[in-house]
Nucleic acid binder design. Structure first.
Lengths: 319, 319
DNA sequence: AGGTGCCATTCCGGAGAGTGGAACGGTCCC
DNA sequence: GGGACCGTTCCACTCTCCGGAATGGCACCT
């Protein structure tokens, strides 16, 4: 049969910044999910590449090692070998050997006779989803200043696939509760930060048009592409986006874009207010001001970096 | 030879919170490092457990998989299979298969035909070194309030081995520069937070006496155990610790302990000031007040947790 | 003191997981 | 059109990895 044999079902799309254009190398299988007022469905699983093992294949030692890491990660305190063996279903000897490898590589650590997650794991995980590496000390003071002036929760978000990820938050005792408090990710179409990123990142917007879903989160959520496009035009013109109880009832937000030196939008900074106080013109101005100040700070920081260490392309990849 | 054969050289000490006391199970090999005015030496490598493979053993697929992750982590942008093969020295087929497993498990992700670090890696890395899991939303407002009232950098630290780890920082534009700005870890004996943890955590203090080093960081650093003990007595009595240019010239700090419900010290909150302004009585009072408020918040949070999810023992392990 | 239960650690024969070179089809560039 | 390099698949074979059994240690109970 040679290479014409059946491969695993696969899905995907050519990444925008790929060196080579391999259009159609991985055929599309992503299905559009209809809008619904039900709780937002789980995101579609990532496309399966041909080299991924099928579900019926027996786990090898790499899979088993990762399973051990997952157990260590979930544990509240360090775990013994016996506990790990029971938890993972692996024989003690197998777990013992694999833990030895993980410890040697720093992904796990041995504490007496117990095991815990190792520091190197966080190192390997690296900066994403993150703001531009190394800029937190520059950005945080601006966010704190914005908090002091508005007394409301201040968020910093980046695009992550077809969602946003909150990478920093600042708030006091007087903050309004929001679903975004509990999650690191939120939709693009109904959050202020998401609208900002869609408005100013054309690649993201295009991808969202192709594959995004406009799930209804509240009765005020925009659920049509045409309506969203009109909204984004306004955002581009005004330089600020609002979410008026579109993601969460009782919460209104204003967001403004943070640009890098190439004019591309990198992040969005936003303020969340209780809907009863609305977003005043003053708060809007402060948000834009903070975003501009952060942009200037980031541009300065980026221009000081050598081209080799300068992160390029969007921090997030697209599915 | 049976079990009396030579094992790998190993080191370590029984963790204080271990369920079983296995004294001498892993013999000590940690050597004391003399005090020195030279830059602080690198920490001793972690002790080698008997199940860790020796350096002469050929790598198995778990090691190879981790090597691939390391390459992806170090990469500025997604890498192709060929690049990864060259970088790691692994044959393309081997890399191809292992990447498939890593992608299936979420530790890597495939972007078109390129590979990048996967989101799940950060998830596995989990909260440590961290404050008590789930308490950031409770602690951060107190830190921000302390910042607003002092206009100085506010740090939150936990013990991590025989050092402290900074797990949260709040600062504005008006902050003083400090070496701790650039690092997540600092010594115990010459930082305000470190003195707090030594003063109120007797196990930590005992371990530090056994194996800690009092490296000289500035001309004001305390470098003798007797002097440190006297200092810690004062800290216990006053409920606050100071670092007066002992860790960094030009910086003075005040720290106070954050206790959990069992009376154990969990964290230390501190404020860093430029030495020219010293630490006023007012700032000291504000730091103690914030620490007490955070303690109350944490105790309330802990008592609301079920015993099963309640983290026990110190978040940090001891070397 | 002795017995029991459970632990981590080591041994070791053998099964099959994992290896990796060869081959194939695709794309890009000259 | 041909060469270079890519990702992907094949497949014979090696030797890594498996995991039950055994061992010694420790805590706990009687």
């Amino acid at each position: 049969m040679g290479n014409h044999g059946l491969a695993n079902p696969a899905a995907g799309v050519c990444p925008h910044f790929s060196r080579k254009v391999h259009t159609d190398r991985m055929p599309r299988t992503i299905t559009h999910q209809g809008s619904s007022s039900l709780p937002r469905p789980l995101p579609a699983p990532p496309p399966i590449a041909p080299n991924e093992p099928g579900p019926l294949e027996k786990p090898g030692s790499l899979e088993k090692g990762i399973t051990l890491l997952a157990s260590l990660s979930a544990a509240v305190e360090p775990m013994s070998l016996a506990e790990l063996s029971r938890k993972t279903g692996l024989p003690k000897t197998t777990a013992y050997r694999l833990l030895g490898v993980l410890c040697a590589k720093g992904l796990a650590q041995r504490i007496g006779i117990d095991y815990a997650i190792g520091d190197r794991l966080a190192t390997l995980a690296g900066p994403g989803p993150r703001m531009i590496p190394g800029t937190r000390p520059l950005v945080l003071p601006h966010m704190i200043r914005l908090y002091e002036r508005t007394r409301q929760t201040v968020n910093l978000a980046v695009a992550r696939g077809l969602e946003i990820a909150y990478v920093e938050r600042v708030y006091g005792h007087d903050r309004v509760s929001s679903p975004s408090d509990e999650v690191d990710r939120a939709p693009l179409h109904c959050t202020a930060s998401g609208k900002v990123l869609l408005a100013f990142d054309h690649g993201l917007n295009s991808a969202f048009h192709d594959r995004g879903t406009l799930d209804r989160m509240t009765r005020r959520t925009i659920v049509g592409h045409a309506a969203l496009d009109r909204e984004l035009s306004v955002v581009r013109r005004r330089g600020v986006a609002y979410s008026r109880e579109e993601f969460a009832e009782g919460v209104v937000c204003a967001a403004a874009p943070v640009f890098d030196g190439d004019g591309g939008v990198r992040m969005a900074v936003s303020v969340a207010c209780p809907s009863r106080s609305a977003v005043s013109g003053e708060v809007t101005a402060l948000v834009k001001q903070a975003a501009q100040a952060i942009s200037a700070t980031v541009v300065t920081a980026l221009s000081a970096m050598t081209p080799r260490t300068r992160p390029d392309g969007p921090p997030a990849s697209f599915l």
